[in-house]
Design a protein around this nucleic acid. Structure first.
Lengths: 219, 219
DNA sequence: CCGGTCTGTCACCAATCGGTGAGTAACAGT
DNA sequence: ACTGTTACTCACCGATTGGTGACAGACCGG
């Protein structure tokens, strides 16, 4: 507990410490949103709550209720960015390659997705959240994400015709499921099903196996 | 709030309601453990705590501290059963088939694992827990599980020689990762990467795709 | 200058959390 | 029948949670 003199000393020593929050609603809104995203990315959804976000944003939780209508609205705001995730985090070009076959395409997409997910802690937390809880908020996040992913897949496929006689939707779901679980498991415990995934060499092996898997089905 | 008369009426009407806990330590220990497992299976790890377990077991939380040394010990006790999960939930026989090749084996194991995981809510929650948190307790659970899984794989492989030139460890990790994420995602939201997984027909398609994936790498 | 709106802060609420110390009731050994 | 141990319950602790109402100060239009 600080008394008045102690506070005075603090203010003296720390050079205009007050850091008085200026009256700027949109700036505060942004501060709250980024605080929420960073908090979610770093701490996970376990301790993701009104109090924690407000603490991190350095403002009162009341403002979260006012500006976002509570946690639900805030989560929805996070989800709104998800639509842009693919285009923000995954390069659209083919890396100078010519993708002639569906197999070429899927191999490339799988590797791109693997790296993108590996580099994005927020997205990892969201995916983990999706498989752990079944609340309305999470369902919304999940929907936005899978929709964006599907659109990306369609867009990248372009005019490439998928192979006949193969349920590409199901196969691709399995491929992307494997990537997601691999990355999540690695991020959480450094391994997946006994396969250690820590240094670059480990990931190299995983990528090779992934390529082999994709090439196995799609040639 | 109930007064004495209300309690008396309750006891009268509900036929020896008191359900007086008999003094049987091992029975209480079992009650706590099963309460914990059921709670975890039904509610997930989010609200899994001392109070909730005690409430469900119908005893005082103090007993959990005494008999299990707290939540950690209780979780450890849950993990102790995990070693037997494979043998309890997955049939050992080959279903009358002859598994001649490594591909035959892996296809069979993948399908068995898929069904077993689909039928076990507790195991699903644990897997989801593993990818969501990184505490010491969860790490223990994860370790026990992956160890049991690895032993099962080895045991089922028997004298079958894995194919040369393929990093089976990495490939199998990906295959099992895909199964786990597929099942978790389906259990949580009824779909995975846009692929709806609700009725038996949906799962049939997933199983076919899984077979195709396995056969693609292992022939 | 005055009144109202907007932005932000604070104090407080009931509920729940994990955790502990003390007490009670049933049993066993002598 | 007395004693000590075992099994169990209860009351309480501080901390934290989500949530709300009241208030203070900056700003803006009149």
């Amino acid at each position: 507990m600080l008394n008045e003199t102690a506070v005075a000393v603090l203010e003296q020593t720390s050079a205009a410490e007050p850091e008085k929050r200026i009256r700027d609603r949109s700036a505060t809104e942004r501060a709250i949103l980024t605080a929420a995203k960073n908090l979610l990315a770093e701490e996970g959804f376990q301790n993701f709550g009104i109090n924690a976000v407000a603490r991190r944003a350095g403002c009162d939780k009341q403002l979260i209720y006012r500006y976002y209508g509570g946690l639900d609205g805030l989560i929805e705001a996070i989800g709104a960015d998800l639509g842009n995730w693919v285009k923000d985090r995954i390069p659209e070009d083919t890396g100078g390659m010519f993708l002639l076959t569906y197999g070429d395409l899927m191999e490339r997409l799988a590797l791109l997705f693997l790296e993108a997910l590996r580099d994005d802690p927020l997205m990892r937390r969201i995916v983990a959240w999706e498989v752990s809880e079944n609340t309305e908020q999470v369902r919304r996040l999940s929907e936005a994400r899978s929709k964006a992913l599907g659109q990306w897949l369609d867009r990248m496929r372009g005019s490439l015709t998928p192979p006949k006689g193969i349920d590409t939707a199901a196969v691709n779901a399995l491929i992307f499921a494997s990537i997601q679980h691999l990355v999540l498991s690695a991020a959480a415990g450094g391994q997946c099903a006994g396969l250690v995934l820590k240094n670059a060499k480990d990931w190299e092996k995983a990528a090779t196996a992934l390529k082999r898997l994709v090439r196995g089905v799609y040639g």
